[in-house]
Design a protein around this nucleic acid. Structure first.
Length: 969
RNA sequence: GCGGGAGUUGCCAAGCCUGGUCAAAGGCGCAGGGCUUAGGACCCUGUCUUUUAGGAGUUCGUGGGUUCAAAUCCCACCUCCCGCACCA
């Protein structure tokens, strides 16, 4: 519904679709984007390949468009650019989708039908996962072609291709050989019914099955263990009692070799954590009340007391009480004391005092009491307790310090002490670990309630290996990373990265070569695949076949290891072809630039570096990473629920590819979120159409003698080229576009104003050149319309085949720049005076500064450039010189001139220094035509030195160089 | 907490890296004018305060500092946004 609104107005004025089609065919016919090794320097640019579980939307378009501009720019700069694309089938979401189709899930089928516009007969096939991937693969590919991405499609592949599987197997064998694949246990969200790990896509309501690790402190009573689960093991020093739920039944169970008393819910949880749990008896909460337990590590005893806030399904059903620092505990204790009359069997209650162990700024001895008073809580079942607890925990965790009564942890910050105490109690055997789902209950799509399971024999990539980390760190510091801010982020990710599970039990992908029960997980089989683009070309051409390929093939291609003849014959490859593959790899590798969205920094991109460094020799390590932010829709995040996700192909149909490309690129610099909105697209479209119109006027390349304004606009063009090139090299594409599209526009306007005022028609050749250069520079950004403009300008061949322009120093004419600046500032001054005085001008006279002032100006400029701005010194100096002694009459001139000069930029001063003398009389005569055009009146120009000048109001004496005096009547 | 980003004139948003051309682009909104039967669209002018001569004053989250010169550099503080995993 919202979708339609966004596209209400397609305001079609030009047939963009057929223009795009026309040029796309030309490119295709010329095989423009197919890249094979040759004698040129290569540039290998890659983007993270898409996961085809839905059509791509504008957001996806951003990364690919950035990469495409990069590729096109480098191509025009003379490089042999390889820009390939593959498709990532590996993963579980497609599997989940397919299962829902099998189950005839209305919601997903409706989404396919209306949101993604998949034909019904296709949807029926979707019960097979690969069909989903295949369908969206094609859909995404078509979109990429329509967007004009300059991809070499001969190298396309999917990650379930048999040859790719061989490649991934090889990769994993290598990693294992280097000791980087290890085995261990690992907690996961788990469905007890399906006997499988669950991810967000497997749960009802798409809940992420996240969980928290609790420390379970073992309190002892007789031979029994009463385990209390806590998030704050450091508070063990402040325990005053335990809490149980008096009306609950507890289990006595043999857990491994100990007798535990726990809730039955807890017993279930423990079973999934690889504990042997056998129930041996029952006991009620009430029976436990009043008993004494021994506090581990402290050795003293505390009582078990009743509390209603205790829940049997949270933790173990037994809670350790730290009333000084836990609001729940404090309140429960207060409640007991209030009702002491009811608990005649517990006469010691009134003697239990909170033990304060943490000191936090802004809180007293008993922080829990402070916060309870602040929140106005008076009952342990108050809903406000949760919030109070959260606030106090955060405050104490980040700002608290342990007090003297905490033994060897005294004076430590809570942040550190928490981890230290946890280790200490775990090592001494007085604690255990329990995992608890954060948002229970989490239900699997099958309906069963999920649990946390400790998986045995899970395979990990050992990203915590210190040597590996160190290597990655040092390479990150050498790599080119754009934008620069991200470098720190990468380093930080490397620091906190731990072992990562690299195989799962279901999903599409490659099987672990040494343990076929596992499938290599999607973020592990997509880290060095850029090397596979080289091979894919030969696979697709039918020159090599997965069936006969063994590891030696990859060793030969990537490491140049082994005997060509033997490997060729083993792999059933013609030796020459094997040799070519190897040479091609050596030519294109390493990856020169990898583009990706920001969300992939903490995972894919970091793994990409890790794995390249592990597997390849240094000369093949990636050179550059370019990271971009996401795309917003009218300032809001795109989301299914908002209905503001626009499929890329729909957008192309309505706006045309070029307008979308520009809209995405121009609205933000790399790291910022780009805002895509209708208004911006329309503005761009208008702009492009107007430019195309303009181009039809400038077919001729004929030149006449260059006038001042011609030299000026040519100078400006050189500066534009310089600035645009600089920006684009730094991938500041928004900035580059601003220069090319908008900033230069004001120069052009001034130029046209000058031309029209002088009624000139002999400048079409200059306009042709200017537009050609501009169109060339636009070509990487808006490739289709640039071709159209290029041909309208009468240029041969293709814009995308032309060379990126280089600035021509010889065409920068400083004198004309100074002259035109003088003209326009004088014109501005005149305009300003008329505005302030609100007068109706009849006649305008301007006066240039006297000769001695010009000389003085140059002297002052020289001194100021040298750093001397002392007015007194300057005046002395000028008086002492005959040429400028007239300064005596007007000492104020020095101060004003110094200010003039100081308010110029350094460049400006240099330029004035270089130019030296500007004949202002001559320049200002040019003003006449402009004044005539704007105000329809005449203009006179005099020099201040002129004896016969017309100067009724004695204005001329205020004239300064670059600042003529003005008289308006 | 750690890491990253941001705070600009009514609103959105450029400028900051590379200090001076910055009272600060552009768009929206608003006001006046043109065009139009009217509305819309479109075009022109204005839009911090002050000023009948191109000027002056006060502004770029807050407070300091560096500099001849600060939206821009440095320091401190305040506020807001994003990420922190086994998920593509």
């Amino acid at each position: 519904m919202l979708l339609n609104n966004l596209f209400l107005e397609s305001d079609k004025t030009m047939d963009w679709i057929s223009i795009e089609e026309k040029w796309r065919q030309k490119w295709h016919a010329e095989k423009q984007f197919e890249s094979d090794p040759d004698e040129r320097k290569k540039f290998f640019v890659t983007v993270a390949y898409p996961y085809p579980n839905s059509p791509q939307h504008i957001g996806h378009g951003r990364t690919y468009t950035l990469a495409d501009v990069h590729a096109r720019f480098m191509r025009m700069s003379g490089y042999n650019v390889l820009f390939p694309m593959g498709f990532h089938y590996t993963g579980t979401p497609i599997l989940g989708m397919s299962r829902r189709v099998q189950e005839n899930d209305k919601e997903i089928i409706e989404a396919f039908r209306t949101l993604y516009k998949v034909p019904d007969e296709k949807i029926r096939e979707f019960s097979e996962p690969v069909k989903i991937a295949d369908y969206f693969h094609q859909e995404i590919k078509n979109g990429m072609i329509e967007m004009g991405y300059s991809i070499d499609w001969r190298r396309e592949f999917t990650t379930i291709d048999p040859f790719y599987n061989k490649f991934i197997e090889w990769q994993f064998k290598k990693l294992r050989e280097y000791g980087l694949v290890i085995q261990g246990t690992h907690p996961v969200g788990w469905c007890p019914k399906d006997q499988n790990p669950v991810s967000q896509h497997d749960t009802l309501g798409d809940v992420e099955p996240s969980f928290t690790e609790y420390t379970v402190i073992k309190f002892r009573y007789d031979n029994y263990v009463l385990p209390a689960a806590t998030l704050r093991p450091e508070t063990i020093f402040g325990v005053t009692n335990l809490w149980v739920k008096p009306d609950a039944d507890y289990e006595i169970a043999k857990v491994d070799n100990e007798e535990w008393i726990i809730s039955s819910e807890c017993a279930t949880k423990l079973r999934f954590l690889n504990k042997k749990v056998t129930r041996t008896g029952n006991i009620t909460g009430a029976e436990l009340v009043g008993k004494k337990v021994k506090v581990p590590e402290r050795g003293d005893e505390v009582f078990i007391l009743p509390a209603t806030f205790v829940k049997s399904d949270d933790g173990t059903g037994i809670v350790m009480s730290v009333p000084a620092h836990a609001p729940f505990d404090y309140q429960a204790l207060e409640d007991l004391k209030k009702n002491a009359a009811k608990y005649t069997n517990l006469p010691f209650i009134s003697e239990i005092k909170p033990i304060s162990i943490i000191e936090t700024e802004g809180y007293g001895d008993i922080p829990a009491r402070d916060i309870i008073e602040k929140f106005g809580i008076d009952d342990q079942n108050s809903p406000k307790l949760e919030e109070a607890t959260k606030e106090l925990y955060a405050k104490e965790f980040y700002g608290g310090k342990l007090k003297q009564n905490t033994g060897k942890f005294a004076r430590k910050a809570v942040t550190d002490a928490k981890e230290d105490v946890r280790k200490w109690v775990l090592e001494s055997g007085s604690a255990d670990i329990l995992y608890e789902l954060n948002e229970s209950p989490v239900r699997c799509r099958c309906g069963a309630e999920c649990v946390v399971k400790l998986l045995d024999n899970q395979w990990f990539l050992n990203y915590s290996n210190p040597e590996w980390k160190a290597k990655v760190h040092s390479w990150i510091n050498e790599m080119k990373i754009l934008p620069e801010e991200i470098r720190n982020e990468f380093n930080h990710v490397v620091d906190w990265l731990k072992e990562r599970a690299c195989a799962r039990q279901h999903g599409l992908g490659t099987k672990l070569p040494w343990d076929k029960n596992w499938i290599i997980e999607s973020l592990s089989d997509s880290v060095i695949y850029m090397a596979y683009y080289i091979i894919a070309k030969y696979v697709n051409a039918g020159q090599i076949n997965a069936e006969y390929i063994s590891d030696s093939f990859f060793d030969y291609v990537f490491f140049d290891k082994g005997d060509l003849k033997k490997i060729a014959s083993d792999s059933e490859i013609i030796p020459q072809i094997l040799e070519n593959i190897k040479k091609e790899f050596q030519y294109y590798y390493p990856v020169n630039a990898r583009h990706s969205g920001r969300d992939l920094v903490p995972n894919h991109l970091t793994f990409f570096i890790f794995n390249h460094l592990a597997i390849f020799p240094k000369k093949y390590w990636p050179e550059e990473i370019v990271v971009n932010g996401s795309v917003l829709m009218d300032g809001k995040k795109m989301s299914k629920s908002m209905g503001n996700i626009i499929p890329l192909r729909d957008a192309i149909k309505i706006h045309g590819a070029d307008s979308i490309r520009l809209a995405i690129l121009i609205s933000a610099e790399l790291l910022q979120d780009a805002d895509f909105n209708q208004e911006a697209v329309r503005g761009i479209k208008n702009k492009l159409e107007n430019m195309l119109d303009e181009c039809t006027k400038y077919k001729t390349t004929r030149y006449t003698v260059l006038m001042q304004e011609d030299k000026w606009i040519q100078s400006r063009l050189q500066q534009l080229i310089y600035k645009a090139t600089f920006s684009i090299q730094k991938m500041r594409l928004r900035e580059a576009l601003h220069h090319i599209l908008y900033e230069f526009e004001s120069d052009l306007q001034w130029y046209i104003r000058r031309i029209e005022a002088k009624n000139r028609t002999d400048n079409l050749g200059i306009m042709h050149d200017i537009f050609s250069a501009r169109v060339t520079m636009m070509s990487p950004f808006a490739p289709y319309i640039s071709e159209e403009m290029w041909s309208k300008l009468g240029n041969p061949s293709l814009a995308s085949k032309s060379s990126w322009p280089t600035p021509d120093e010889a065409k920068i004419d400083l004198l004309s720049i100074q002259s035109e600046t003088l003209l326009s500032t004088t014109l501005d001054d005149i305009k300003n005076i008329i505005k302030v005085t609100k007068m109706n001008p009849k006649k305008i006279t301007v006066y240039t500064a006297a000769t001695w002032k010009v000389k003085a100006y140059q002297k002052i400029l020289e001194r100021v450039t040298g750093g001397d701005i002392n007015i007194g010194n300057l005046i002395k100096l000028l008086i002492s010189d005959k040429e400028t002694e007239e300064i005596k009459k007007d000492p104020d001139f020095v101060k004003k001139t110094v200010n003039d000069i100081l308010s110029d930029t350094q460049d400006e001063r240099d330029s004035k220094n270089k130019v030296g003398f500007v004949d202002e009389m001559k320049v200002l005569f040019e003003l006449e035509s402009l004044i005539k055009r704007e105000y329809g009146i005449g203009l006179q120009v005099f020099s201040e030195s002129d004896q016969n000048k017309y100067d009724p109001k004695n204005k001329s004496k205020t004239a300064r160089p670059y600042k003529p005096a003005i008289l308006i009547e």
